[in-house]
């Protein structure tokens, strides 16, 4: 940073020196113009008033040569300074580099902002969930009911019994839901309500079912029952063995 500052200060000093040189050369050229005009007037007056005009002409020639040489010299100096100032494009290249750097930074900032917005969209905790659940208005629900009634009228009379069974089962399910719990086989077997009416003791063993998925999750595992049965068998075996041991002890005590 210090080196860059020092180099920038040196550049500024050199530029200021060039500018002062250019201004000085331009000012000398302007002064030379007025001097040349004054010298031309002096030569004219001396040539007209002098007796030996040859010497005056020679002096004028010499002065003209020197004046042309000095004018060319000054013009060369001015043009060189101006060319040097115009051809120095280091400042422009530096400014262009800085602008490109700023542009790159802005691009990186835009990329970062886009990345942040994308991550918000992808991993938002409160994401809206759309279910396949639609609510119909009253007029639309009436129209749908009329269509269903007309379809039911077109069905066969043989299907009416099955539909009545299904409707009765649904009524039972609704009543059971209102009470709270529904046996599992209500969802699986159609003729089970009669069995339920007969065996009311087994109704206590029936699982409460809220909906189909919870009933499936809460259904007892048959392998678990099998293991329980095995455990009972082992207990029986152990009880039988204890009885034999007790008989052997009694037999040992009796003699």
């Amino acid at each position: 940073m210090q080196n860059s500052k020092a180099s920038s200060e040196e550049d500024l000093d050199s530029e200021s020196k060039d500018v002062t040189h250019f201004d000085q050369s331009l000012q000398e050229l302007r002064d030379l113009r007025s001097q040349l005009h004054y010298a031309a007037d002096y030569c004219e007056s001396t040539f007209l008033n002098a007796k030996e005009k040859k010497a005056v002409v020679e002096n004028t020639k010499e002065y003209l040569c020197r004046a042309v040489v000095t004018v060319v010299d000054h013009l060369g100096c001015v043009s060189a300074n101006l060319n040097c100032l115009v051809s120095e494009t280091n400042a422009f290249s530096a400014a262009e580099l800085r602008i490109n750097c700023l542009k790159q930074r802005l691009l990186s900032c835009e990329l970062y902002a886009n990345k942040l917005s994308l991550s918000r969209v992808r991993w938002s905790e409160i994401r809206p969930r759309h279910h396949s659940h639609y609510l119909l208005s009253s007029a639309a629900s009436k129209a749908v009911g009329d269509i269903e009634k007309s379809n039911e009228g077109l069905r066969d009379s043989g299907n009416l019994t099955s539909t009545k069974k299904v409707i009765d089962e649904k009524h039972i399910e609704v009543d059971r839901d209102q009470d709270g719990n529904v046996p599992l086989f209500f969802y699986t077997f159609g003729n089970k309500p009669a069995a339920l009416a007969k065996d009311e003791k087994n109704s206590a063993l029936a699982l409460p079912v809220g909906d189909g998925l919870s009933a499936l999750s809460k259904c007892p595992n048959p392998t678990f029952h099998f293991q329980e049965k095995r455990k009972n068998g082992r207990n029986r075996k152990s009880a039988h063995g204890s009885d034999i041991l007790a008989l052997i002890r009694r037999a040992k005590r009796t003699p």
Binding site: L106, C109, E110, Y112, A113, L116, S117
Partner: peptide, 10 residues
């Protein structure tokens, strides 16, 4: 970019 600083706040 400075008018929308919320873009750069995570």
């Amino acid at each position: 970019a400075s008018a929308n600083p919320s873009l750069f706040t995570s």
